[in-house]
Design a protein around this nucleic acid. Structure first.
Lengths: 165, 165
DNA sequence: CATGTTGTTCAATAAATACTGAACATTTCG
DNA sequence: CGAAATGTTCAGTATTTATTGAACAACATG
């Protein structure tokens, strides 16, 4: 149908600045630059955008755009909106910080916490069969480690509550 | 003087596992792998280690070791201990999670928060001179952004208190 | 069912990042 | 002072990670 031609290239100065802000955020969160760009353009846009809208404005490839949107969907930073009579998927940025943070925590952080717990268990097993002069000290260190792990696990949900809304 | 020969290579299985754990943590925090290794070997060691001890055990270069230790010092994850009659610097891992987190927050995160604030200010200025149909919506978005920023800034110190000790 | 549209996948490539090692600076000590 | 010990810096290289774009799958539509 092509009812609305996708605007090519040339971002306004404001758009560029907002996108730059999210690119830096992406960097802090160890996400690809393109993911920050995509969230930025969706965040600042006043209407939903489809894959082609995004990639033409940001001047990035179809592949990157597809993957970037997938990542953003994976932790609920964006959501799709249905536009009647249009086959394309349209996206808007989720603006509830709480929702995004919760999604990010459960998708990107929780897995690390879990695999960390597994590893500590494995270390405990090795420790049983370990004999050396410093065994007691090593045990103390592993206790400490487990303590950190536990606190990290408990602190995460509290942070999410703190962020509120 | 060389009173104690630096142990070469070959980590025990426990050491390897503990180091692997910190390597993964480093990854989450966007720090180089070698920084995780260094913290790991210092964490599990029952005595202070010097630069050469670290690099021989981890089998990494002098340059990486020097830079890695510098990074760890920069946010207080390790500290030096003085060993009488030895010219070398010896290091131990800081084991107070609170101290490490506070150092990391103020050295690695705070700067981003600050530069983000600057950028939002700049966006506000651009916004004054901005004329378009969607101006009001854009203003709302920038308000939202500023709100996030403020909350992030306030939440950080609370998190540190939560971690306690 | 042939065609156009939309989105995904993935091998090749580009870009970013970390690591190495040799040269250098600094200090200690005989 | 000269030599040995210690640590830092940085240009070159290796490694990791992200991006591209072409091939493909899925689907709608006439």
């Amino acid at each position: 149908m092509n009812e609305m031609t996708a605007k090519e290239g040339s971002l306004s100065e404001i758009e560029s600045e907002v996108i730059a802000l999210f690119v830096r955020m992406a960097d802090v969160l160890s996400l690809p630059r393109s993911v920050g760009e995509l969230y930025g353009i969706l965040f600042i846009s006043s209407e939903p955008l489809c894959l082609d809208d995004c990639r033409l404005r940001l001047n990035i490839s179809k592949g990157s755009t597809s993957q970037g949107l997938k990542i953003l969907r994976s932790f609920g930073a964006i959501r799709t909106v249905y536009i009647p009579g249009d086959r394309k998927d349209y996206y808007v940025a989720e603006t509830s910080l709480r929702k995004i943070a919760a999604g990010f925590a459960s998708e990107q952080i929780q897995p690390h916490v879990v695999s960390g717990k597994d590893r500590i268990e494995r270390i405990r097993e090795l420790l049983d069969a370990y004999e050396a002069a410093d065994k007691d000290e090593v045990i103390d260190k592993v206790d400490l480690l487990e303590n950190w792990q536990r606190r990290a696990g408990k602190t995460l949900p509290i942070i999410l509550k703190l962020i509120g809304n």
